[in-house]
Design a protein around this nucleic acid. Structure first.
Lengths: 242, 242
DNA sequence: CGTACGGTTGACACGACTCAATGGCAGTGG
DNA sequence: CCACTGCCATTGAGTCGTGTCAACCGTACG
């Protein structure tokens, strides 16, 4: 195989990527984009259940999800596991390594996925050169923090029903952002994963899903979700206590 | 009054600050420190119940807590409030404004406090010049993310008892870091605030505190906490389900 | 074909919330 | 100085949501 061609293939073309409006490149200048493309590495696809990185691994890169999906799992000293995020195309993962320069989560692939690798050293250099990129990074980091805080409220104050409703709304909105339907979309994660993420027992979630179907709110079959009534969902999310 | 002297007073001296080993300056070079001091503004003390910033305010600065304490309160559309963090001396607040350039939390002062203001524009410039400072910022941001994630696990998977134990351990450790006793320290927040932070009803917390006293784990009187047995506390935190 | 795992369903228990009443303390105004 | 007024904290009684346990089914996979 011709090496030069291979290299050309490996280097990412953010401009041509359909996710560029969701992803880091959003709002960057031409010059910034050109240099960003130079440091972004395409990675070979990763199979289901493989680790993108593990808790304790040295933090060396951020990763942008190109296709597929993954989950970040935080494990406590006693072995309790908590899913702290699901990552869909256009989203950036790896921020949990910023503090100690080692990852504090496992990042596990939910379905065959491909990612772009953004070496942190080179990103740092670029951020120093381009304030637009620096701000874009900060914006993504800030979004992660805000989402985590919103999740704290969800877990601390919401009922099981409100949690599921909120989760479906979130997935629906992210689905829309990617240009897919906000009313019918695939869910790459298992029911167990969703239950864990929402701080519920799998049994509780199972009963809730059934109830949502019966009451015409939403239907989940296999790994496909159909929102039956956005109105009802939004009411459940917005309302404090019924 | 002589203006030049006044200016000299306003400008912070991170080097002389007893918190420098906890705070942003930690690990910076002399040169970085000199320039950092130039952008840090001392602010007049803020009284109890005042807002450092509000949800929706334009994000213009980070703030380093010099003395006192504050809480970050995240409010949902329906008015539900969740305390997402307590901030003690040496800690940096304001990160919730990174995403949209507007704060997503209220930051409320718990007891008369003073802060150092770090204008974000000037910090950005400095970060571009000094990689050490850049990394220090990233480290603090990453720590916030990791702590939030650890909090997600706490709220999703832990019993009320484990949550309180974990909270006390955290306060104890932070107290130690500041050079105060890890076994006896003041708690600047109300019982209500703690309950809210831990996702509990105030009544539940009250009963738990009583139980902790009775079982020789910890005693909380007025706003002072005494750890009676670090061992017992650690067991409660480390143990999964008994 | 056997095994493992994810998801479902039912019975049951219990932890934590809600509601309501009381006490204590701080701040305020007469 | 003391009554008034809130707010916070406490305590008890009762309920309900959600977790736990156990059994079962279907499907994927080796």
């Amino acid at each position: 195989m011709n090496t030069s061609i291979k290299l050309a293939e490996i280097q990412a073309s953010c401009r041509q990527c359909s996710l560029s409006e969701l992803c880091l490149p959003r709002g960057l200048t031409d010059e910034e984009l050109t240099d960003l493309e130079k440091v972004v590495d395409q990675q070979p696809p990763i199979d289901k259940n493989q680790y993108l990185y593990r808790n304790g691994d040295k933090f060396k890169s951020f990763y942008a999800v190109k296709s597929g999906a993954m989950k970040s799992v935080f494990t406590s000293v006693d072995g309790e596991e908590q899913i702290v995020g699901f990552h869909l195309p256009g989203e950036l993962v790896g921020l949990d390594g910023l503090n100690t320069k080692r990852h504090t989560c496992d990042c596990i692939v939910l379905e065959r996925s491909s990612v772009c690798e953004l070496p942190s050293i080179r990103m740092e250099e670029l951020c120093r050169r381009y304030s637009g990129l620096h701000r874009a990074m900060h914006s993504i980091i800030g979004k992660t923090i805000s989402e985590d805080q919103s999740m704290l409220l969800l877990l601390a104050r919401r009922s099981a029903e409100e949690r599921l409703a909120s989760f479906l709304v979130s997935l629906s909105q992210r689905s829309l952002l990617r240009g897919v339907s906000g009313s019918e979309f695939d869910m790459p994660m298992s029911m167990r994963d969703i239950a864990n993420y929402l701080g519920l027992a799998p049994e509780t979630l199972s009963r809730l899903v059934k109830k949502f179907d019966k009451t015409g709110v939403a239907r989940i079959d296999k790994r496909r979700a159909i929102i039956l009534s956005h109105d009802k969902l939004n009411v459940m999310v917005a309302d404090c206590k019924h």
